[in-house]
Computed example of a mutant assay.
Amino acid sequence: MSALPLNSQNLPYPDPMHPIIVHFVIAMVFFSFFCDLVGYFTRNTRLLEVSFWNMFVASVAIFLAIIFGQFEAGLAQASLAAQPTLNFHTVLGWSLGALVVAITAWRFVIRNRNPLKISPAYLGVATFLICLVFLQEYLGSKLFWVYGLHVEPVVEAMKQGVSR
């Protein structure tokens, strides 16, 4: 069995999939939080329902983002300088996966007990989740924009041994 041919970004497919999937997850988590806040203060139960379903889909999609992230990180020729950021991004990604599922399960219980309202405690934990998502976004942006993971000129330089 031969290895998959890698393109100029060091990937076996045209573009990195991790950022595409992860931005979908980020949008769903943020929109869920927005709907919960507005639904909480306006008592609009339809927004609370939209929020739940966004978190439900995000809790599934986040694992696709993690799987592609792990695969693409394994193919990246990360410099020694990038390693601590990549390691923290990986650990936080898995932690966020577990946290999103746990929050979605909690939200499911809240929804089943009383679909007309959510608790301030849930909103507090959801706010903490949003803060962690912002941190994760920062780390991912740093890996791309500062360290150039899967950026063609950086991949070429790494292949030629220019950077390590």
Rank of each mutant, 00 (worst) to 15 (best):
M1G: 14
S2R: 11
A3Y: 12
A3M: 14
A3V: 14
L4I: 15
L4G: 07
P5L: 14
P5N: 10
N7C: 04
N7S: 03
S8L: 09
Q9V: 12
L11D: 05
P12I: 14
P12A: 07
P12K: 05
Y13W: 11
P14D: 03
M17F: 00
M17Q: 09
H18M: 11
P19E: 08
P19I: 07
I20Q: 04
I20D: 00
I20S: 01
I21N: 03
H23G: 08
F24T: 15
V25A: 05
I26R: 06
M28T: 12
V29A: 11
V29N: 12
F31A: 13
F31C: 12
S32F: 13
F33G: 09
F34H: 12
C35R: 06
D36Y: 12
L37S: 00
V38M: 02
G39S: 01
T42M: 03
R43K: 10
N44I: 08
T45W: 03
L47E: 00
L47S: 01
L48K: 00
S51L: 04
S51Y: 01
F52Y: 13
N54H: 04
N54L: 11
N54A: 05
M55Y: 14
M55R: 10
M55A: 08
F56M: 04
F56E: 00
F56A: 03
A58M: 10
A61N: 12
I62C: 06
F63Q: 03
L64D: 08
A65M: 05
I66P: 04
I67C: 13
G69N: 13
G69I: 07
F71M: 15
A73T: 10
A73D: 12
G74E: 12
G74S: 11
A76N: 10
A76M: 08
Q77P: 06
Q77A: 09
A78G: 09
A78P: 06
S79M: 04
A81Q: 08
Q83P: 00
Q83I: 05
Q83M: 10
P84F: 02
L86S: 05
N87C: 02
H89Y: 05
H89W: 05
T90R: 15
T90S: 14
T90D: 14
V91Y: 11
G93T: 07
G93L: 06
L96V: 02
L99K: 07
L99E: 02
L99H: 06
V100A: 09
V101K: 03
I103K: 07
T104V: 09
T104Y: 10
A105G: 07
W106Q: 07
V109N: 06
R113E: 07
L116G: 00
L116E: 01
I118F: 02
I118S: 01
S119T: 01
S119I: 00
Y122P: 05
G124R: 04
V125R: 06
V125C: 09
A126N: 06
A126K: 09
T127F: 15
T127Y: 10
F128S: 04
L129D: 01
L129M: 13
L129G: 01
L129E: 05
I130V: 13
F134L: 15
F134I: 07
Q136G: 08
E137A: 15
S141K: 12
K142V: 04
L143G: 08
W145P: 02
Y147T: 13
Y147L: 11
Y147D: 15
Y147H: 15
G148Q: 09
L149V: 14
E152V: 15
P153A: 13
A157W: 05
M158Q: 14
M158N: 09
Q160Y: 04
G161M: 13
G161Y: 14
R164S: 10
R164L: 12
R164G: 11
